[in-house]
Amino acid sequence: MTNAQSDTQAPASFITVDGLTKRFGDTVALNDVDLRLDKGETLAIIGPSAAGKSVLMKCIVGIYGADSGSIILNGDDVSKPNAEARPEWASQIGMLFQQNALFDSLTVWENICFRQIEAGTMSRDDAKAHAIDLLGHVGLAEESAVLKPNDLSGGMQKRVGIARAISSDPALLLLDNPTAGLDPVLSNHIELMIAKIAKQRGTTVISITNDMQIARHRYQNLMMMHDGKVYWSGPTSAIDDAHNEHLTQMLNGSAQGPISMRAGKRNDGVYA
């Protein structure tokens, strides 16, 4: 999904997903998914619920092994279980989970620098200082470092989750619904913050969102998923009003249940 100019010749993209398929029993969660991003590019994934967005993310981070296809991250195929190389791959990825998944028996700063403390790459004092620095980046006060996650509000927890995701300065940032459950003002603020962080650090960002406007205006690329397949993908600059209307309809189809989704024009090939 590189920009049109470089599309013809893209020798070494940062992440390439090719023909990825993942089944859970009889359910096909991902069906022949392709994806291609260069370093520093941003991608928004949208789609109705149960489209396979989170599963794709969890395959990339290595929580699920792929049934077929490949995920090439920085030259390594990370789609197959590999206990030896996993820590090395995982260290390149920072992930924000939908429910934040903060570890509630640890303090905020221990959460943020969990990886560094566990790997022994930072002393506890350094880790705390680093965490406090990151708290500043995500707009939280230094005092919150010593609190437990459950002493914080939902929006603050989300910020701590983002701080944790970026704490090891990952090359790839995966965000599962970073603004879910937040009010529009706060959503906008968080999205701006993510864009700023990504730009500053040259991070490649893949983010799941349900907001077509945010996807269009804050991300360079967009991928629409439906029923485990890629329904549409391309640079957001290529989305005109007709595209927008169609994609928004697809997205909102989720509200009318699975039957209307299947009735949607998904195999017409117009935008594919």
Partner: peptide
């Protein structure tokens, strides 16, 4: 324990016992 907690551990490639 919420599923996300297990997954967060896995996303960091933490070994099982850890």
């Amino acid at each position: 324990v919420p599923r996300g907690q297990f997954e967060a551990g896995e996303s960091l490639a933490l070994p099982y016992w850890k």
